[in-house]
Write a protein that binds this DNA or RNA. Structure first.
Lengths: 201, 201
DNA sequence: TGACAGAACGAACGATCGTTCTAAATTAGG
DNA sequence: CCTAATTTAGAACGATCGTTCGTTCTGTCA
C-alpha cells in the first residue's frame, strides 16, 4: 500500500516534466513508461485512463507551483513587498524548478483553450484562483496605503499575467537574453503607475 | 497544373483552422483529409511529408496574418496613430478571421518553444520580424515627436506583446468578458507612459 | 480528339496509440 | 514465514499514425 503511492508520485513528477515540453495531449503512456523504466501496462494500472493521468498530472503541477512559488511569496510582509515577492518568486520559478522545459501551464492553457472537458475546467479554476490570489494581494496593498485607492486590483493582476506571459515567450521561444530585464522593467512601470496614477488603471 | 494549387490552398486554409485548435503537432493527415473529403494519400501527395505540411501551414498562417492584420495597420498615418492602428488591428484579428479557435501562433509558440527544428526556426524568425516591425513603428513615432525620445522601442514592443498574450489568455481560456476592455486599458497605460515618462521605459 | 501529365484514390506497411486481460513478482501484515 | 493483497510485467486488441505503392480518374494542351 506504500510502494504504489511512491511510484505514483515518481510517475507524476516525470509526467509534469514531460508535459511541459510536449503538452498534456502530447503525453504518451508508452514514452512515459520507457522513461521511468516501467511497463506500459504497469504504469497504466496506476490510473484507469489517460485522462485520469492527465488530470492527476495537472493537479501535481499545481501543487508544486504552490510549494515553489506561491507559498514562499506569501511569507513576505503584506502590502507592496508581498506584491513584489509574488512577481519575483514567479519570475524565479524556472530556476527553482529547473527540470521543466517551458511553463507547464502555458502549454496546458494553449492546448485546452479550445477543448472543453474536465481538464480544461480544472485548469480554468486553477488560473482563476491564482489571479484571485494576486488580486487580493494587491487589494491588501491598497488598504495598507501602499497603492492608489482608485487602482483596479483585477486589472493589475491581469497586467501582471501579461508580463509573465511575455517573459515566457521572450525567454523560451525567442531565447532573448534581455527577457528578464524586460519583465522587471515592465513590472516596475506597472507598480509605479499603481502607486500614484488614478488614470492608468 | 492549376487544379493542384487550388486544392493545396484549400488544404492549407483548413489546416490553419484545425491547427489553431489542436496545434501543429496535433494536426493529423487523416482527420484533415476527412474534413476536406479527400483521401489520405491524395492529400499527402501534395506535400511529401508531414513536416512539410506543417511548414506550409505555418507560412500560410503568417501570410494571412499579414493580409488581415499587418497590412491594414500600416495604412494608418505614421506616428502614434499607426502604433494604435497596429494594436487595434491586432485586437480585432479574431473578428476578421472568425474561423480560427484561439491564436494559431500562440498555440505554435508553446508547442515549439522546446522542440528544435525547422518549424521552430521559422516561427522564431516570424515572431522576430513582427516584433521588429512594431519596434520600427514605435521608433518612427518617436522621431515624429509623438513619443518620448528616451523611450525604448523594443521594450514597448515587448510590452505590447504581453498585453496581447494576456488578452488571448483571458478571452480564450478564461472566457473573461472584460478581456478586451482590459487590453485597451493596458494599452492606454502603455501609451501614456510612452508619451511622457522617461522613467518607465 | 488523342495523348500525356497531374491529381486523387484504395490498399497496405510497420509503428505506436490507449486499453484490457492474465500471470508473475513483490510487498505488507499477522 | 506464510499468506493475502498489491504492484508490475507481458502479450494482445482494435484503432490510428505517417508513409509508400500502383492504379485510376481527370483535367490540359497540341
Amino acid at each position: 500500500m506504500r510502494k504504489g503511492q511512491l511510484t505514483r508520485q515518481a510517475i507524476l513528477q516525470r509526467a509534469v516534466q514531460l508535459a511541459s515540453k510536449v503538452g498534456l495531449a502530447g503525453l504518451t503512456i508508452g514514452t512515459l513508461a520507457d522513461d521511468l523504466e516501467l511497463s506500459k501496462s504497469g504504469l497504466f494500472a496506476h490510473f484507469q485512463s489517460k485522462e485520469a493521468l492527465q488530470l492527476k498530472t495537472l493537479e501535481f503541477a499545481a501543487a508544486s507551483f504552490v510549494d515553489l512559488v506561491v507559498r514562499p511569496a506569501l511569507a513576505a510582509p503584506r502590502g507592496v513587498p508581498r506584491v513584489r515577492a509574488v512577481f519575483e518568486s514567479w519570475l524565479d520559478w524556472p530556476r527553482r524548478d529547473p527540470l521543466q522545459g517551458g511553463c507547464f501551464f502555458v502549454a496546458a492553457a494553449s492546448e485546452l483553450d479550445d477543448r472543453p472537458g474536465a481538464l480544461r475546467d480544472r485548469l480554468v479554476a486553477m488560473q482563476k484562483d491564482w489571479l484571485e490570489l494576486i488580486t487580493n494581494t494587491v487589494r491588501t496593498a491598497i488598504l495598507e496605503g501602499h497603492l492608489h485607492p482608485a487602482l483596479d486590483p483585477e486589472q493589475f493582476a491581469h497586467d501582471l499575467y501579461g508580463i509573465m506571459l511575455a517573459y515566457h515567450h521572450a525567454s523560451r521561444l525567442l531565447a532573448d537574453p534581455e527577457a528578464e530585464r524586460r519583465a522587471r522593467r515592465a513590472f516596475d512601470r506597472l507598480l509605479l503607475s499603481a502607486r500614484s496614477a488614478p488614470s492608468g488603471n
